[in-house]
Design a protein around this nucleic acid. Structure first.
Lengths: 364, 364
DNA sequence: AGGAGTGATGTAAAGGTTTACATTCACGTC
DNA sequence: GACGTGAATGTAAACCTTTACATCACTCCT
């Protein structure tokens, strides 16, 4: 008969010949119950196979043991490893992880908001640069939340991620060390904080090397493959080209490389390219991509840990935790002292769209 | 004052001047409530911003609105898109998706079992070939479950996935059409059902073309990159090589290609390779990988739909739903009529480990 | 010896919902 | 005009915990 319906605390109490209050105490505050009684209860639990009914517990406590993780796109290659870190840490606290993807649709964001309002989640992890709900006044109702991977634009929400500026700095330092002087930054954005920070690293690197920033080499982009492609096309339209492309992320770098190879250029022979993130594909591309590694699992773990601090009402001392990025050197960056010198117009081969090339046909 | 604490059904009832029972009915069985009353309730809900407390509801109903998705590895490239399909379908039924990854550790599997026993999940999706819990007798207690991507070995659990045999058949038919006669199968496994089915497709294809299966060309493997690498090394040890490698999945194919290129062979010039799954990397490799595409999002969607059928106590008419696979032709397969004919020993270049090559040094 | 203090346990309320059962009312039928 | 029928609504129990408060039995102090 105990098979059909799960054992309740009452079954345990009856078997251990104590009251249900004692059973509850034996579980949650064992020090308040006599050793002997504790033993009886433990045995009764083992016999009945009792597990606390999480629903009843959450109802009573007014707080669930779930954390909602919201991402615009679950398929994002950066997402899964962060999720691993999040899940591990949550589970070690006895919490479960609920996932939601908004596909950047505010309507869907609102549906998840309902999850929160109905007490189904005690806290929230945001894997997105902006709050996924339209501008509801409900902001006041938001449970403790932590942003990961990209700072949350609307502010006020603590954030755990990589040190974007430091990472970008490592990339540009490498390019400069390899002899590059004309380095483009692909993927400027006013609304994406991570982009802005990476660009800051780019600027720092240039000025540390006493190189002047050529604003014509700074291209906007939203971090998609397409944006990388587009940036290259536009640079080719104009009459100067860089010898290296520092991309705001790996997706952008993929787009840049596709555009360059489509035009018949070789990497790193003709141009060097760097990315940011170290997505799984980075080591399978041709050439393999030199990039900045995100400590993804660590980000997830720390973000969840911070969230638990918030849940315990501890005001966090820091509102932002920045992890150290690593430079991963692969094959998309070449020593280009020669390339840089051989260049006249900023590119190496003659190409039809460049006005100067057409003017003097001399360039190979 | 309604700000501090979420509105309850009682607040709504008071405002609408009805009993809480009527409010509940107005929400869940509106046809049982007079039109006029229904209107009053609807307005009261809008004013108070009431949302049903999911905890209380689940407690009362004895069933939650969560589905647990268990995977050995969240980071699996196949996982994320399936998850998208699962999540979309679940949410459209008002259910949330809870995720767990076991890392193939039965201990962790058991922790999730507790989730189930405590009524936190109404059903389960298994993204794994074997039940993630040790051999507990608890099997009887398992909630409605559906396997995805790989049939569940322990049996009895309905399954939604791609038609492995048909997919494999498409791959081998392509290879045969391209002129290959000696085709290896890399990744045989006794415990993994998906592997067995793909091998069955391989066998069918061979016999349909009246080709004899050479058992020396069937290599075991667990579907990892390393297993692909190892298989190639072992084939090189022996004195016959295939002209094409049909791999049980993309990971294996990656391993095979790495091993072949490390030995200086070109693909598809010297050897052809096919994969299975069409993981995201497949289109970024060099050469890009010809493979079989998994309809991942569709698998997720249909699996979740099937699970909801089970939850509604409908005995499912079919215990297995197989989706049609697509062949994705890329660059890792070459017309190898010439290669096949030029071969003496089954490989094209002379290589030091082959006894025959060493014996007659003639082969280029 | 009486009482304060302490430690262990029990009693009962509360948390928000759903729903079986009871009640009320209006209507139509004989 | 009494009564059965059916629709609309209300009452109250049940789901399973947690915990404030009450109770009880000690020990120790004065």
């Amino acid at each position: 008969m105990s098979k059909s319906t799960p054992a309740t605390i009452e079954d345990v109490a009856r078997l251990a010949e104590v009251s249900i209050a004692t059973v509850s105490r034996a579980i949650h505050t064992p020090e308040k119950v006599a050793k002997e009684t504790r033993l009886k209860v433990t045995q009764a639990i083992a016999i009945t196979g009792y597990t606390t009914n999480a629903m009843a517990r959450s109802l009573r406590l007014g707080r669930s043991n779930m954390i909602l993780v919201v991402a615009p796109d679950i398929g994002d290659p950066n997402f899964s490893n962060i999720l691993v870190g999040l899940e591990n840490e949550a589970r070690s606290h006895g919490y479960g992880v609920l996932i939601g993807h908004t596909q950047n649709d505010p309507q869907r964001g609102l549906e998840y908001l309902k999850f929160l309002n109905s007490n189904q989640a005690a806290g929230m992890i945001l894997f997105t640069g902006i709050l996924p709900f339209g501008h509801q006044t409900m902001t006041a109702r938001l449970p403790p939340s932590v942003g990961v991977f990209e700072p949350v634009y609307n502010g006020g929400i603590p954030y755990v991620g990589v040190d974007d500026a430091a990472g970008a700095r490592k990339a540009i330092d490498l390019l400069i060390a390899e002899g590059h002087r004309r380095i483009a930054f692909i993927g400027e954005s006013r609304t994406r904080l991570a982009h802005a920070r990476r660009k800051a690293g780019y600027e720092d690197g240039l000025s540390a090397a006493r190189l002047e920033l050529d604003p014509r080499l700074v291209m906007p982009g939203d971090g998609t493959i397409e944006s990388g492609r587009l940036a290259v096309e536009q640079l080719f339209m104009r009459d100067t080209l860089p010898s290296a492309f520092m991309c705001v992320n790996d997706q952008t770098a993929i787009g840049v490389m596709l555009a360059l190879t489509a035009r018949g250029y070789s990497i790193p022979g003709d141009f060097s390219v760097t990315g940011f993130d170290d997505v799984p594909q980075a080591s399978f591309m041709n050439p393999t991509l030199t990039t900045i590694r995100q400590p993804r699992t660590a980000i997830g773990k720390q973000a969840m840990a911070l969230l638990f601090k918030l849940l315990q009402d501890e005001k966090p001392e820091e509102t932002e935790i920045l992890l150290a990025p690593d430079l991963v050197v692969r094959n998309s960056v070449g020593g280009s002292a020669r390339a840089a010198e051989a260049l006249t117009h900023g590119h190496r081969r003659r190409h039809p769209l460049c006005a100067r090339c057409r003017a003097d046909g001399s360039l190979l």
